[in-house]
Structures are given as structure tokens and as C-alpha cells.
């Protein structure tokens, strides 16, 4: 009888292990994500990075041909494409060379950062996206200094950076990096009146 049990046990085990019908599975990974076309296309858009309710930094695409629509709705005064530059001039705390500042705000990164500081649109808020930058919606920041050195993008703004939370830093870094080079976003060194942060990459 013991011999019999020795034969039967594996058989029974095999049958039960096989089971009948369709079994549940764990999550199985299957390839990458699906790539879609985002409109407007790459050359006509400005990528800004906002934060969703779960703290993830997500991109939104604004059309570069129609930035005024948004800027007008912003709480800040002023008008035209030079708003950022104007603000920069009037509110620059250090009173540094306004010519240079203006020049720098005309770069893509500078523009994008200024737009980001103004805050999300209604549609973006409806989708649960928000900005973690301080003072959003009241006064857009000004770009003090901006350039590229050693493959890194340098940018100094009127916004204090020491107190920024991690997602806010990522918002800024991603926005600047993708504005500089959307194909290969560089590292970004972010500076403010209170100092500068170590080089960071858009995660």
C-alpha cells in the first residue's frame, strides 16, 4: 500500500497543480507603452510640466502660436509677447542689466518658465493638474540669467529655490530641459536669489 501511495501522490499533485478552467494571473508586463501623436506638433508647441493629484509630473502642450490667449487670462498686467521681459524689467529685484535679462527671457526656456509660473489653465485644472510653484497666479517670476555651459542649462530666476519642494523643482527642471532640447533634455542647474541647486535631470 505504501508503494501505491508513492505512485498516486505525484499524480494527484500534478492534477491539482494543473487545475481546471482559467486561472488568475499576476500582472504580466507586455512591451512598452503606446506612442501617440500629440497635437499641436513638436515645432508649434511649448511643453510645460504640471503635477497631478498623485504627485506625478506630467507634460501639457501649449501652442506657441497662441500664447496670448493664456497670458491674457493670467492675473498679471501687461500685454504682448514682451510681457515676460517687461515684468522682468520692472520687478527685477537685483536691478541687474535689463538688456541681458530681456535677451534671456526671449529664449525658449525662459519663456516656458515664465509661462509655467503663471499657472495652469482651466482645462488643465479640470483634468486634475496643478502647479506646485509658490506664488503661482499672482506674479510671474523673472529670469535673471540664463545660458548653456558644459552641456548643462543654467538658469537663475527671481524665485527662491532653497525652499522649493521636489516636485516643484522637477516641474521647473523638466520645463527648462524640454524647452532647451526636446529630443535630448539636458541637465539643468537652477538658481535663485538664495543660491543655486545642484544639477538635476528631468526624471
Amino acid at each position: 500500500m505504501r508503494r501505491l501511495r508513492g505512485v498516486l501522490a505525484p499524480a494527484v499533485l500534478l492534477l491539482t497543480a494543473t487545475g481546471c478552467g482559467i486561472q488568475q494571473t499576476d500582472v504580466v508586463e507586455a512591451g512598452g507603452g503606446a506612442t501617440v501623436t500629440v497635437i499641436p506638433p513638436g515645432s508649434e508647441r511649448m511643453l510645460l510640466f504640471l503635477v497631478d493629484r498623485e504627485g506625478r509630473v506630467l507634460p501639457v502642450a501649449r501652442s506657441t502660436s497662441d500664447p496670448l490667449v493664456h497670458w491674457d487670462t493670467g492675473p498679471s498686467s501687461g500685454s504682448g509677447t514682451e510681457t515676460a521681459g517687461t515684468t522682468d524689467e520692472t520687478e527685477a529685484p537685483g536691478g541687474s542689466g535689463s538688456e541681458a535679462g530681456l535677451e534671456k527671457t526671449r529664449t525658449k526656456a525662459g519663456k516656458a518658465l515664465v509661462v509655467l509660473s503663471i499657472g495652469p489653465t482651466d482645462a488643465e485644472r479640470d483634468a486634475g493638474l496643478d502647479s506646485r510653484l509658490p506664488g503661482t497666479g499672482r506674479s510671474p517670476l523673472t529670469i535673471v540669467e540664463q545660458g548653456t555651459k558644459g552641456g548643462r542649462a543654467w538658469i537663475r530666476t527671481s524665485m527662491p529655490v532653497r525652499e522649493l519642494e521636489g516636485t516643484a523643482v522637477q516641474q521647473v527642471v523638466c520645463t527648462v530641459a524640454y524647452a532647451e532640447n526636446p529630443t535630448a533634455p539636458p541637465e539643468v542647474v537652477l538658481g535663485g536669489p538664495d543660491g543655486q541647486l545642484p544639477a538635476a535631470r528631468c526624471e
Binding site: 503606446a34 501617440v36 500629440v38 513638436g42 511643453l47 507634460p59 526636446p182 529630443t183 535630448a184
Partner: peptide, 15 residues
């Protein structure tokens, strides 16, 4: 869903 932030080529980024 991901998209290509750059011009066709380059890395992708989740939307």
C-alpha cells in the same frame, strides 16, 4: 500612453 517630445526621434515621455 507615451509621446515623443522631440521631432519624431528621441526618447518618449508618458503623457
Amino acid at each position: 500612453i507615451v509621446f515623443t517630445p522631440g521631432e519624431q526621434s528621441g526618447g518618449t515621455r508618458p503623457t
